[in-house]
Computed example of a mutant assay.
Amino acid sequence: MKFLCLVSAAVIIVCACNVRFMRGMEELKDEKTHKVFIERLTLGVTRVLESLPGVIDVRFAEREPAEKRCLLSWEQKNVCILPEDLRDFYLTTDGFTLTWNSKLENEYVSVGCMVINSIVKLRHLGQSTVFSLPNTPTIADLDSDGETEDTENGREKPHFDSRSRIFELDPCAGNGKVCLVYNNCTEGEVAQQCDVWFLDRSLYWHYLTPSFTAYYRLMITHLGLPEWQYSFTPYGPSPQAKVTSQSCACHSFL
């Protein structure tokens, strides 16, 4: 009888150990799957940054996927169809934020910042002033009929009136705005074709990419360096931004 009790107790202990082991394996598997997911989402840039000398505090803000009803609500409200690649992005993660710092001599400096607004913050640019500064004119005051084409790409520049529907993808830390732009719009009709433009601090438009995916890869490639979007303007980043970028070891990666 005692022997049977001991056997039963041993079986219970073994089963409990097996359960704990299986749970541990599942957690390990989930952790590995999660790491692979983050690696794919960031296109491996976190690993690249962490391997560069002088780069510290690489931080990726994880977010839940956006709900489909939120995407449908956005489309109905703005009378626009989200491009398929951007829709898939939001169904994977509702926005994107990755930052990193650098150690320059004995100081820690905030350097890299990559941002894609959440679907809630993908706001129409016409709903507010272009930049949040006192006495800033509204967008309606800024549109003009001159220089309607981008001279470098032969593309029609966005308009601040009903001819274009403009949405902010990245506030660029106040140094401009990366925008999702629907051109050649007709009032009351659903807009479907869009591309990505950069609006600089002087309120000039600069064409970036034909799709969100192309812009996303461009953002990752430039590692979120200060004012990197100005590399696609005739005048380039500010001297201060250039000094900061050149002081970091990562500038040799680009």
Rank of each mutant, 00 (worst) to 15 (best):
Ala173Ser: 13
Lys68Tyr: 08
Phe96Asn: 00
Asp30Val: 11
Ser202Trp: 03
Pro210Trp: 10
Met22Pro: 00
Glu187Pro: 01
Glu227Gln: 10
Arg163Thr: 07
Glu147Ala: 08
Ser128Tyr: 11
Glu147Thr: 04
Ile12Phe: 11
Lys35Phe: 05
Leu122Glu: 00
Ile139Pro: 02
Val243Tyr: 12
Arg163Ala: 06
Ser8Ala: 06
Ala214His: 07
Arg40Trp: 12
Thr186Cys: 04
Glu27Val: 08
Pro134Asn: 06
Trp100Arg: 01
Thr221Gly: 10
Ala10Cys: 14
Thr46Leu: 13
Leu28Cys: 07
Ser164Arg: 01
Gly154Phe: 04
Arg201Glu: 10
Thr138His: 15
Thr209Ser: 02
Ile56Gln: 00
Glu39Asp: 15
Gly174Cys: 02
Gly176Arg: 03
Cys250Ala: 10
Asn153Leu: 05
Lys103His: 09
Ala10Phe: 15
Val79Ala: 13
Thr97Ser: 13
Asn101Val: 03
Asn153Asp: 10
Leu91Thr: 01
Arg20Tyr: 15
Cys179His: 01
Cys15Lys: 04
Glu50Lys: 07
Thr148Asn: 07
Cys179Phe: 05
Phe167Gln: 02
Leu98Ser: 03
Ala9Asn: 08
Arg87Ile: 05
Gln229Asp: 10
Glu27Tyr: 04
Tyr182Val: 13
Asp85Ser: 08
His34Phe: 07
Tyr182Asn: 11
His34Gln: 14
Lys177Ile: 13
Leu91His: 03
Gln76Tyr: 09
Ser132Thr: 14
Leu122Cys: 03
Thr151Glu: 08
His124Met: 14
Gly236Asn: 06
Arg23Val: 14
Tyr216Asp: 05
Glu152Cys: 08
His206Phe: 11
Tyr235Arg: 07
Cys15Asp: 05
Tyr230Asp: 05
Leu91Lys: 01
Thr129Pro: 09
Leu254Val: 15
Thr97Asp: 10
Ser102Tyr: 00
Arg59Cys: 12
Ser231Cys: 07
Arg63Ser: 05
Met25Asp: 14
Val14His: 08
Phe3His: 09
Val190Glu: 09
